[in-house]
């Protein structure tokens, strides 16, 4: 493990720090986390504070991003929406990466019929338009943020499984795995102590990109009214009212969308940066 640690300090961090896009992404990611955590300190209005005298006000010094159809401050709703979006992103991507990593490790390590079956399941899952599958499952459940996270996670693990499997296949053949076997390590120990730490990089990248994907999916679901339910603010459901008032209130559509765009962009840039920094074939 000491070797790992110094690798990260000597190679990974400097490489990542030299990638301007990745650094920008990381800064935005941290900033968004801070906004989500410190939401009550940032806003002047409650996210659900209705004001009948300020309905659909355009952006002003008082309401930076304007107000919505109930006179609620859009800036506050976006700031509080960050909590929901990031929570969904983290949990859903976490579930997907967890399932994908475990199945990928098992498939790659054991090979044979286990590998064959697992990879066929991956093929089958890839056949479904993911968005259809998510909507179909949600048809049978009450719309709730927890179901959404679970469903997004359950439909997003296949890519991770393939990547981790490929990594595991090459690691499995290495001498140190043979050595571990010779001294009588159990399969479980070999998989989780010896293979996992070396196969973790594709999972790490997938997790970062997965957060971005999950935020996009959640916002689309909420936009369609099947995701996070009002009055809880989410970037997607603010846009729903944006659609209804598109002719009079552009700010209702513009700002929540920008929030999604910037956040997703930041996670993607960070994820790509991590991938490049971990890739030994790229020399910079």
């Amino acid at each position: 493990m000491i070797g790992q640690y110094s690798y990260f300090r000597a190679v990974f961090w400097p490489r990542l720090a030299r990638n301007r896009f990745a650094v920008a992404g990381a800064i935005v990611v941290l900033l968004m986390l801070a906004v989500a955590l410190l939401a009550p300190l940032i806003v002047h209005f409650g996210p659900n504070e209705i004001n009948a005298r300020a309905v659909l006000d355009p952006p002003s010094l008082r309401h930076w991003f304007g107000t919505d159809d109930l006179g609620r401050d859009v800036f506050s709703r976006i700031v509080y929406g960050a909590r929901i979006s990031l929570l969904v992103g983290f949990v859903a991507a976490g579930i997907a990466v967890l399932i994908g990593t475990v199945l990928g490790l098992v498939a790659g390590f054991y090979g044979g019929w286990i590998d064959n079956i697992l990879m066929r399941v991956v093929d089958i899952m890839f056949c479904f338009p993911t968005f259809f599958l998510i909507l179909a499952v949600i048809t049978f459940l009450r719309p709730s943020i927890w179901y959404i996270m679970i469903v997004i996670g359950l439909t997003g693990w296949m890519g991770v499984a393939r990547l981790v499997r490929a990594e595991t296949l090459s690691i499995r053949e290495m001498d140190y795995i043979m050595a571990a076997r010779c001294i009588g390590c159990s399969d479980r120990r070999i998989i989780f102590r010896h293979i996992l730490p070396n196969a973790v990089s594709p999972a790490l990248v997938a997790a970062t990109l997965g957060i971005a994907g999950a935020i996009l999916t959640e916002s689309a679901l909420s936009f369609l009214g099947i995701g996070v339910q009002p009055p809880t603010p989410s970037w997607g459901n603010i846009l729903t009212s944006g659609k209804d008032y598109i002719e009079f209130a552009w700010w209702l559509s513009l700002f929540p969308g920008l929030a999604i765009l910037i956040t997703v962009l930041a996670y993607n840039l960070l994820g790509e940066g991590v991938r490049d920094a971990l890739d030994p074939r790229i020399k910079r």
Binding site: A212, L224, L239, S253, P256, I260, L261, I262, N268, L269
Partner: peptide, 13 residues
């Protein structure tokens, strides 16, 4: 990269 991050429904709006 921006294209990756744009939510389609927002673009539609």
């Amino acid at each position: 990269f921006v294209g990756f991050a744009v939510p389609t429904f927002w673009l539609a709006l």
